[in-house]
Design a protein around this nucleic acid. Sequence first.
DNA 1: GTTGGAAATTGACGAAACGTCATTTTTCTG
DNA 2: CAGAAAAATGACGTTTCGTCAATTTCCAAC
Lengths: 202, 202
Amino acid sequence: MAAIEPIGKREKTKAANRQAILVAARRVFAQLGYDAATVRDIIRGTDLASGTFYNYFRSKEEVYEALADDSAARFRPILRHARENASSFEDYLHGAFRAYFRFVVEEYPEEGRPIDERLPHVRLDTPETKAVYKEVRQSLEEAMAGGQAPAVDADYLACACIGIAQEVGSAMLRRAPPDVEAAAAFATGLVLKGLAGAPHKT
Amino acid sequence: MAAIEPIGKREKTKAANRQAILVAARRVFAQLGYDAATVRDIIRGTDLASGTFYNYFRSKEEVYEALADDSAARFRPILRHARENASSFEDYLHGAFRAYFRFVVEEYPEEGRPIDERLPHVRLDTPETKAVYKEVRQSLEEAMAGGQAPAVDADYLACACIGIAQEVGSAMLRRAPPDVEAAAAFATGLVLKGLAGAPHKT
DNA sequence: GTTGGAAATTGACGAAACGTCATTTTTCTG
DNA sequence: CAGAAAAATGACGTTTCGTCAATTTCCAAC
């Protein structure tokens, strides 16, 4: 048979348990809110014992970080794809914003508390979120070096783009139905040409 | 006669106690981080009994909200001043960004944990933060109505400006020393003219 | 100025959640 | 299959929670 499965039962259940905790945590946070949720609430959402939780995470805080890291890790290849397939700087920007807005729409759970009470307003600094930031900044620096974009402070510009994405993304989710294309067009225009570049209202 | 000062001892100590709790909370959050801090840690920072805490706030979460609301309440008149004294739209934008960046530099406590570790993972929508958003959006709408700015989606634009301010503000704080003027020039240029409007690097 | 009562404070208490750890169960390996 | 290593378990002592009856403080009416 296909002996190309270097994964033993040990590692497999370990990964499954970790994932089960993360899934349960995501649901519990959405339902109860971060502060009200307890480690026991989370572990009750799995078939594990309370002590087992601490084999995987040190605290509720750490689970939350892992969730954020997980999201960033899933978004990163999407962002990379947008970068590699871009035919121009404008194309890259638009693709990246659109990819992010699509991502948050997909990640947005239908049930649970109102959006304002469940999303982290603060960007967590996890390895993967830092990598996303770095990826953005490098793309921008590359474009500047290649003369496709004016040479400005790449750090500030990356932060600004991320801030725009986060806040416009949240605003988009509050509208029904969320219009990914419109949001992406707005963000891209704003960054490229400022107010003058954003889609005009009639 | 002297302006009516209907403040008896009751109301005075009540206000003082509330303030004492907020001050202690600010310090405790900065020192221990939001998650590690307990209601008892906060109340120990005052000369009040543990039960008294619950006469003022229902939970640690609510104290944090009050802190955020407090900050927004202090920033709002500053923002209003920037709006009223602006001679043009560009002037308003620049003044508002500069005021915000100054504000965060002043509010940033010198001691405590690194900036990334001391904020909570809850999204804050308090009356005053909503009012700040509203103020921003109205200023933008006014400028659009007056023809000083292109007519774009005011909600998105307000969110984008706030996102830029937050993220660029954080990035600015990570630099030593923080340069308020440079950050304000960057943000203003970006919003007004996009990349082309941001200060160029030599 | 005294006094009755409303308002606020207090700290002790039971409940709930925490994090640990000795024990048991599962998995790996030789 | 046996012994060892790894992981899971849940009971336990500890810490924090939120409440509440008792106490203190303040106000206002007399």
